[in-house]
Design a protein around this nucleic acid. Structure first.
Length: 927
RNA sequence: GGUCGCGUAGCUCAGCUGGUUAGAGCGCUGGUCUCACAUACCAGAGGUCCGGGGUUCGAGUCCCUGCGCGACCACCA
């Protein structure tokens, strides 16, 4: 493993050269493998932390959506693993019924074959082979972005184990009376030739037309009733015209009959409250076989239900239709038929009016074909009883949804839930475990094992030809992947319920809500306590990234160019809670610059550190006498503590602290972007910009103090790498391996991936704070240099004077360091205001300490006065406002004590500063 | 039709229960190839926090309203 053995670091970080080897090393060490026996729930002593992956479709190729989703999961699982939990991330894939079948069908078409032509058995075999060949690809791609899944537990919804769970679930629901056969109008995709659930038939807004058609009265063709419809072709299947019973316009017509144009049949005018008098003409044509609402009306009024549209959306004279569809329309596609019908009506003078009409039309979520409502027999799950506990769990805080606003959406869906059509007229999927006996025609047989003959008559059985909705296996995922229906399965006992479910909000109903229902029904426990819903990846025009738009980003391209860590960092840093992320597929350089720049920075800190601390092992921090720590040491250690605390706070409690999420707790944690920003700014703006710079002199000088600096540097960098590992696992592992800490590495196999999450250690807070004077002095001197355009490299003289004895002492002790960082000869003087006009530039620190830079001949008194006066004015203005606030009785009475106290302190500081500033102005600008 | 979200620097966005002089990244300007890093360093410019009302000692944050986006739901025939 030369790539991560201790050796000189290359000048440039080369992610492509090390990531694969590092990942392999994690695999070899087994750090991703969870052990049921170690879980407290199974007799061990570790708290389990489990995530089940939203299984990507077996046919899927990794895109940014997966990238975002899985990086978030990996971050959480790595965090908890390091925090000491028994962490399990279950990976796997979904057989994706319609999607996969479509892919294979397209391949057949390309070969000039058809599904029907090759036959069911051969088709399924072929699909299985296809999946075997290509199905694992996306999981390999997840490895390329560093996902630490437990690959020994990789699951597949169509595997024998999970298929057993599916059948068990079906039988249990059937036995409980929650699965039934229903005869009704369902959503049908005429291209996929299968029924769809309500969720799978997606609304899309479209501008269509509303056709007003006159139906003449049968006994008086000079009179008629005008109906409004968006789908004139369905009129051939009309069996009635419905009006509202209270609608005075039509009251007299109720009970009379109209002659249906073109079809030439007589149908009644009926009254039904479903009719909205405000819409269209207030009269609705009723087509029970081709509209879900009309079907309900048809049932209520015991109307016939003629079928005039075939499964492939061509016109036919189907069941009960007689010869309603004229011969020249039969076989015509529904859109062509619509034009013909409209033309015929126009010719007959029955087309009263056509207006444009905005409405939502349902489309197949897999192929986008307009869905056709179709009367058929399907299997349904009765959802209301299942919804109840799922609803209660979110309401009472056993489950929280983050961000919280989705809880309302979830609640609304579940309270208005409708039964779930679970049968699909496909070949790829779990065959419905129902058998019929054609010989005796008895009750269908539903059982766990395939029956061989009819139990009543011994006759041959015929299995239901349909398969189950893909989501019928997905909703079992958290339990089936852990071993259910074997209730004693070790994984189920050790890792269920799981903890966090990470997903986009688009499958909240499809999947998440149903998993919760399944968890309660089959096991009696909610499957997870936190649902984390992240945003969608969009392009700069704010469009969803999609294959068809060609605006997608291939995460593997990013990995190749900048490394997995750059991808991960960028994605995490941009992941505001529930906020969509904009990435430009045409400019990967810019889009992923934050991540790439940060990994480069990290690498260079590592190079500095390893080049300057030497080869010998560094003492542990604990071995250093605290009295030997410098202010800078105390400062960076305090900043590290603060960073750890802030990261912990941003990530929040990993599980409900008291069993259920309280109102406030629901909104705590899961701020992944905040965690990333905290860690970044600590490493870059504090560790690199100040501490590392401050140690250069000490390291060069060596000696006892050099040892102290080395120890602190290595300690802090070690902690920083741990803190960053869940975000950028590869580079942190590569650097951590080279830390000169001898045998002190903890964790499994001496890998950072198995090491412990850092903890705050506490320290000398006051001395740490004193270092802020150093930081401010250096900044002040740099500003003066820039303002007076002192050429770089020119050393200038400066004098510092503390606002207090304590500050003065600090500046005196640290003047050499300040001088080195600011490129100046610095001395400290008790009253070294250095007022010599024309030769000094002045700056003030927040506590009123004074920095004077001696600039012979450079400083223009006028200009310096203008600057200082401006500063004084600004300070006076703000001080005035502050004092006003402190004299406001209501403020004093109502503001929290801490706020008032803070304002008081601030006022004191500002006053002191003002004093000094005023004195300077007075002395300098007397004229 | 209902519900919800968004509108903060040129761009992408933080800003969580109202409380320092509103922040970051990218971009921009000026200066530096300083022995970890030019994918960097130093300094800087840039904001009527969408408009209008209101509540409050105090509003980017809460309420109302208008405008502009967006999402989801719905028996928009």
């Amino acid at each position: 493993m030369s790539t991560i053995s201790p050796s000189e670091l290359s000048a440039q970080y080369d992610p492509a050269g090390v990531e694969r080897a590092i990942y392999q090393r994690w695999l070899d060490a087994g750090v991703f493998v969870a052990h049921a026996g170690r879980s407290r729930a199974a007799g061990g002593d570790l708290v389990p932390f489990t995530i089940v992956i939203p299984p990507p479709n077996v046919t899927a190729v990794l895109h940014m959506g997966h990238g975002l989703d899985n990086v978030a999961q990996d971050l959480l699982i790595r965090w908890r693993r390091m925090a000491g939990d028994e962490a399990l991330w279950v990976p796997g894939t979904d057989h994706a019924g319609i999607a996969t079948q479509n892919v294979v069908e397209r391949a057949l078409t390309a070969e000039g074959l058809t599904r029907e032509g090759v036959g069911r058995q051969a088709f399924v075999t072929r699909t299985e082979q296809f999946v075997e060949r290509t199905g694992g690809r996306i999981l390999e791609q997840l490895q390329a972005i560093g996902c630490s899944c437990d690959w020994t537990r990789t699951a597949y919804t169509l595997s024998p184990a999970l298929s057993r769970a599916v059948r068990e679930a079906f039988v249990r629901l059937y036995d409980a009376g929650l699965i039934y056969r229903g005869h009704r109008v369902i959503h049908w995709c005429p291209r996929c030739l299968t029924s769809l659930s309500d969720e799978e038939a997606e609304f899309e807004n479209e501008t269509g037309r509303l056709y007003h058609i006159r139906y003449p009265l049968a006994d008086d063709p000079s009179r008629g009733i005008t109906v409004a419809t968006t789908r004139p072709e369905t009129m051939l299947g009309d069996v009635a015209v419905a009006v509202h019973p209270e609608d005075d316009r039509y009251r007299a017509l109720i009970g009379r009959r109209v002659r249906l144009p073109i079809a030439g049949v007589e149908i009644p005018i009926i009254a039904d409250e479903f009719t909205d008098p405000e819409f269209g003409t207030g009269a609705v044509k009723i087509t029970p076989a081709h509209d879900a609402n009309d079907f309900e009306v048809g049932v209520r009024h015991a109307l016939p239900m003629p079928v005039v549209i075939a499964p492939d959306a061509t016109m036919i004279n189907g069941q009960d239709a007689a010869a309603r569809v004229p011969a020249d329309l039969v076989g015509l596609d529904r859109t062509a038929a619509r034009e013909r019908v409209v033309a015929m009506l126009r010719d007959a003078g029955l087309l009263v009016n056509v207006e444009t009409h905005e409405h939502a039309v349902r489309h197949c979520y897999r192929c986008h074909t307009v869905v056709e409502p179709r009367l058929s027999d399907q299997w349904f799950v009765r959802m209301a009883p299942l919804a109840e506990p799922a609803l209660a769990a979110v309401r009472d805080g056993r489950i929280r949804i983050v961000p919280e606003r989705w809880e309302g959406v979830y609640d609304h869906w579940l309270t208005n839930i409708r039964d779930w059509n679970i049968s699909r007229q496909l070949w790829w999927g779990h065959r419905i475990p129902v058998w019929y006996c054609d010989a005796c025609g008895g009750e269908p047989i539903v059982q766990r094992t395939d029956p061989s003959a009819c139990p009543s008559c011994g006759g041959a059985l015929r299995q239901d030809p349909d398969v189950l909705d893909t989501w019928f296996s997905s909703w079992l995922w958290p339990i089936s992947t852990l071993g259910w229906p074997d209730e004693d399965a070790p994984d189920l006992r050790a890792f269920y319920p799981t903890d966090v479910l990470v997903s986009g909000p688009d499958i909240l109903f499809f999947w998440i809500a149903r998993m919760i229902m399944a968890g309660f029904f089959f096991i009696g426990k909610h499957p997870f306590h936190t649902v984390y819903l992240h945003g969608i990846v969009r392009d700069p025009q704010h469009r969803k990234m999609s294959k068809s738009l060609g605006n997608g980003i291939d995460p593997l391209d990013v990995v190749r160019l900048y490394g997995a860590d750059a991808l991960r960092y960028t994605v995490i840093a941009g992941m505001g809670l529930g906020v969509d992320m904009t990435l430009d597929h045409e400019n990967l350089e810019t889009s992923f610059a934050p991540g790439r720049n940060f990994t480069t920075k990290l690498w260079n800190i590592g190079r500095f550190l390893l080049g300057n601390v030497g080869d010998g092992d560094v003492q542990p921090l604990d071995a250093i006498d605290p009295a030997h720590l410098q202010r800078a040491d105390e400062w960076i250690l305090a900043r590290l503590d603060a960073a750890i605390a802030a990261c912990d706070a941003a990530l929040g409690p990993s599980r409900p602290p008291h069993g259920r999420w309280s109102g406030a707790e629901r909104r705590t944690g899961m701020r992944l972007n905040e965690y990333a920003e905290t860690a970044r700014s600590f490493v870059w703006n504090e560790l690199a910009d100040w501490y590392v710079e401050s140690t250069k002199g000490r390291l060069a000088a060596g000696g006892a103090d050099g040892e102290v600096a080395r120890a602190v540097l290595v300690h802090v960098f070690d902690a920083a790498l741990r803190l960053l590992h869940p975000i950028v696992p590869f580079i942190t592992e590569a650097l951590w391996q080279r830390l000169p800490v001898g045998g002190r590495r903890d964790g499994d196999g001496a890998l950072l991936a198995g090491a412990r999450w850092p903890r705050a250690r506490g320290g000398a807070a006051e001395r740490a704070r004193e270092f802020e004077l150093v930081v401010q002095s250096v900044s002040a001197l740099r500003q003066l240099r820039a303002e007076y355009r002192v050429p770089p490299g020119t050393r200038v003289r400066a004098t510092l004077s503390g606002a207090s004895d304590a500050a003065h002492a600090v500046l005196g002790e640290e003047h050499a360091l300040i001088g080195r960082l600011a490129g100046a000869e610095v001395s400290a003087a008790r009253d070294g205001v250095g007022l010599a006009p024309g030769s000094a530039a002045h700056a003030l620190l927040t506590d009123g300490s004074s920095v004077v830079m001696h600039l012979e001949g450079v400083v223009d008194v006028e200009r310096e006065c203008v600057r200082l006066r401006g500063e004084l004015e600004e300070l006076d203005r703000q001080l005035g406002a502050l004092r006003g606030r402190l004299q406001n009785e209501r403020f004093l009475a109502r503001a929290p004590a801490a706020v008032v106290e803070g304002e008081r302190k601030k006022a004191e500081e500002w006053s002191a500063r003002r004093e000094v500033l005023a004195r300077k102005v007075e002395a300098l600008c007397a004229g």
